[in-house]
């Protein structure tokens, strides 16, 4: 059920990308899609009643390995979030350039193919 809701979040992002006309709304759709995919990856590695994958001094290594959540998806998502921010900044920069050239954020008005 949680997976289904997570996929709904991804679908909302895809809806924003495909159906919206305003460039800023399309960027927001990309951001929502990003969040949904990150959440899905973390959900894959979750373990019920688990602990965070950080070892403590007083903790036995075997009980730690038996109760901790999966560290691998967390490691992948950690880098992906920061890269998502950089890609968002890149998209905003492109949108600014498009606004300067066409005077609008509306994608249907940007169909003039002038150089």
């Amino acid at each position: 059920m949680i997976y289904a809701l997570c996929f709904t979040l991804i679908l909302v992002g895809l809806y924003g990308i495909t159906c919206k006309k305003n460039l800023i709304k399309i960027i927001l759709g990309f951001i929502i899609l990003d969040y949904g995919i990150n959440l899905f990856l973390i959900l894959i590695g979750f373990r019920k009643d688990g602990i965070a994958p950080i070892l403590d001094k007083s903790m036995d290594i075997n009980t730690f390995a038996a109760t901790s959540v999966d560290p691998l998806p967390q490691a992948l998502v950690l880098t992906s979030i920061v890269i998502g921010l950089a890609v968002t900044a890149l998209m905003v920069a492109l949108a600014t350039r498009i606004y300067e050239r066409y005077g609008s954020f509306d994608v249907t008005k940007i169909n003039k193919l002038k150089g």
């Binding site: 994958p53 950080i54 403590d56 290594i61 390995a65 901790s68 999966d70 560290p71 967390q74």
Partner: peptide, 23 residues
Amino acid sequence: NLSKVAQYYLLRGFEETGAANIV
């Protein structure tokens, strides 16, 4: 669900790298 490689990281990660934060 928990992958096999995650078990390896959790069991051997501390003694092989010395980092308490497995991530």
